[in-house]
Computed example of a mutant assay.
Amino acid sequence: MTFGEQPAYLRVASDLREKIANGSLPPHTRLPSQARIREEYGVSDTVALEARKVLMAEGLVEGRSGSGTYVRERPVPRRVARSGYRPASGATPFRQEQAAEGARGTWDARSEQEAAGRETAARLGIEPGDRVMRTRYVYRDGGEAMMVATSWEPLAVTGRTPVMLPEEGPLGGCGVVERMAAIDVVVDNVVEEVGARPGLAEELLVLGGVPGHVVMVVERTFYASGLAVETADIVVPADRYRLSYHLPVR
């Protein structure tokens, strides 16, 4: 194979992908059978099978037991705004980050103490085994799960204070900045690192999707004078949402 040439299965997959994109193969249409692909493109069964596998891995088609492979409905991605800290305006941080105006955001949360694992400890600048408060969230828009998150806060900072439980007490449900200010900890910056990976089984069970679907992961950490006071993993389905950053220019 010379430089620039594609393997046959990728050429077939590329042509089928184009037909899906331009509407020649609209959503819910059955993908040509393996035999049809073999005849139409003059390729082997192996090539035809590999081309179908590529489209399935990309989430463009899905198999239906006993029926065949069909083009998936492609949702129009919605925005999730990530605009940094904004002073309290009567809206919770989640509502401030809603994907669209008029969205009806709700969430469930569960907190429990645990010993920090190695990765969590590194992100918080503490020792593995130090106690943290872990809180798991499921965020919904109009009843549909749109993202899941797990946050960790060092109990050396929040332990035995009114804000030890993020979703309970007088500041339950408020953002990290407001909660920390209540115990005289001034948050002055936040770092977010965005990556992508296949969703974990337990994440996809909540968010919807099949094994292999890609999720975006925002690793967020709040700092107060260099001290990490909260770190979190925010997981968003990549096929349904886009992260939109609006940052001030100084």
Rank of each mutant, 00 (worst) to 15 (best):
G4R: 12
G4E: 09
L10Y: 13
R11G: 15
V12F: 13
S14Y: 05
L16V: 11
R17M: 10
R17N: 12
R17D: 11
E18H: 03
G23N: 09
G23T: 09
L25A: 02
P26S: 02
H28C: 05
T29W: 04
T29P: 00
T29A: 15
A35Q: 08
R36S: 13
I37F: 04
R38G: 10
E40A: 14
Y41Q: 07
G42C: 11
V43T: 14
S44N: 14
S44L: 10
V47E: 13
A48Q: 04
L49Q: 11
E50S: 06
K53Y: 07
V54A: 03
V54Q: 04
L55E: 01
L60I: 00
R64M: 05
R64T: 04
S67V: 10
G68Y: 02
R79A: 14
R79F: 03
A81P: 12
G84T: 09
A88Q: 05
S89I: 02
T92M: 08
R95V: 11
A99V: 05
A100Y: 03
R104C: 01
R104M: 03
R104E: 05
T106I: 04
T106A: 14
T106G: 15
W107L: 15
S111T: 13
S111N: 06
E112F: 14
E112C: 02
E114P: 04
R118H: 11
E119R: 13
G125L: 15
G125W: 14
I126S: 13
P128Q: 06
R131K: 10
R131T: 11
R136T: 07
Y137V: 12
Y139T: 10
G142A: 01
G142I: 04
A145S: 14
M146W: 09
M146G: 14
M147L: 15
V148R: 04
P154N: 06
V157M: 06
T158G: 01
R160F: 04
R160N: 01
T161K: 03
P162N: 09
V163R: 09
V163S: 12
L165D: 14
P166S: 03
G169E: 08
P170V: 12
P170L: 11
L171H: 11
G175D: 15
V176F: 06
V177W: 10
R179S: 12
R179Q: 15
M180W: 07
M180D: 02
A182K: 08
A182H: 15
D184R: 15
D188M: 10
D188Q: 10
D188Y: 11
D188E: 12
N189D: 07
V191P: 00
G199I: 01
L200K: 09
L200T: 08
A201Q: 11
L204T: 05
L205V: 08
V206K: 01
V206Q: 00
G208C: 04
P211V: 07
G212Y: 00
V217A: 04
V218N: 05
E219Q: 07
T221W: 00
A224W: 09
A224D: 13
G226A: 12
A228P: 05
V229A: 13
E230S: 08
A232V: 03
V236N: 05
P237G: 08
R240E: 06
H246I: 12
L247R: 12
L247W: 07
P248Q: 09
V249G: 08
V249K: 10
R250K: 03
